[in-house]
Design a protein around this nucleic acid. Sequence first.
DNA 1: TCGCTAACTTAACACTGTTAAGTAACGGAG
DNA 2: CTCCGTTACTTAACAGTGTTAAGTTAGCGA
Lengths: 218, 218
Amino acid sequence: MGPRERREREREGIRSRILDAARELFASEGVDSVTMRRIAERIEYSPTAIYFHFRDKDALLEELCDHDFREFAQGFGVIAQMPDPVERLRAAGYAYVDFGLRNPSHYRLMFMVPKNATPQSKTITKGDPAEDAYAFVKGIVGDLLKKKLLREDLTDPDLVAQVIWSAIHGLVALEIARCNDQWVDWRPVEQRTRQVVDMILYGLMKPADGVRSAADSG
Amino acid sequence: MGPRERREREREGIRSRILDAARELFASEGVDSVTMRRIAERIEYSPTAIYFHFRDKDALLEELCDHDFREFAQGFGVIAQMPDPVERLRAAGYAYVDFGLRNPSHYRLMFMVPKNATPQSKTITKGDPAEDAYAFVKGIVGDLLKKKLLREDLTDPDLVAQVIWSAIHGLVALEIARCNDQWVDWRPVEQRTRQVVDMILYGLMKPADGVRSAADSG
DNA sequence: TCGCTAACTTAACACTGTTAAGTAACGGAG
DNA sequence: CTCCGTTACTTAACAGTGTTAAGTTAGCGA
């Protein structure tokens, strides 16, 4: 009760209005259009008012990132239900690429800009597959290990998860940064996605088990 | 001959002085320190003088990139001599990663910043493996195809080259953008490199032929 | 010698993030 | 109720950015 809490609520309100304005600007006009002055304009405050709620512009973008990270991880919700870890990995790969290509600006901010650290997020619990996409992949790798489906020299879930992430990230990152590059005779991104995922599965699993390629099922 | 040519030479001279200054600034203090004013300071000209030689800052950076692209491709010179395409691919992978990690600023500018096009370079001849790194990889893939070492469903050299590039690029790009990220328990980049290259070979080649992993030879 | 043009410089514009100083409103203490 | 301090802002300004417009000087061709 009391005005103490009301002030707190109001403060939180304007905070998220700032974040919303930044996000809209960001999504509709690209990261370069996210200036303090344009954010301020949208919420009808003076530019410097933002500094009362965020340390600086980087802190603001960091919090935007934070939100995106959770949303990103939550996108894997249904996939987590799949019983077969191989199919789960394949689906996760497709979902990852899909997110990146649907939200190139967000993806850039999240993974393609050098950062000292992923937001030391108080709001995302590290290691929880529902909120942490890396933990989700690592979980799948753990299941593959348990079922002894991986090559015998692969025993470190972190290492394998990082290798998988590299390949998928490279696909998305190149598409975002180089999609209009006339130099390379690009194959359709869907085709590349299928082949990268196939390569990951063929490349990490025991040959004996045989990987059903994407071509077989669709 | 006469003063006509001398002027031409002088013009070319100041042009490359600008490029050199920009390159030094870029390598020693990062891309953010490459401002028109600081470049001008170094060559003891006024900032606006640069505009007489380059359309704008982007054009200047583009030409910087151009130079890096050729240097990058030339780094594959000795590797091109290797007779076995499998070993050639492995060595090319290591060399690629090595370049990226040794020149993170250059790598970022070359491959991690969205561009409408790789410089429509008059100075790099597309398709020449000595000057075009993509063509070099595509050439290796062609040899692998000729020797029937690839999985039977893989017949398109461009597609395969792009898949290989994705995986290697992802490794480098993540290392550059996220090397200090506390969120992920990163394995040493050398270890990841070996595993990514192994995954590419295991993932693309026929299982029958057996891939000698990096662990076997070193 | 005249004049044109290439190669510059200086001044300025329109931006950017950010800080310093000033102002109005609100809440608790005496 | 009054006073006072904190909170939440605004206005003005600084230092920086890329870039353009206008003015200046030097050198070549006629």
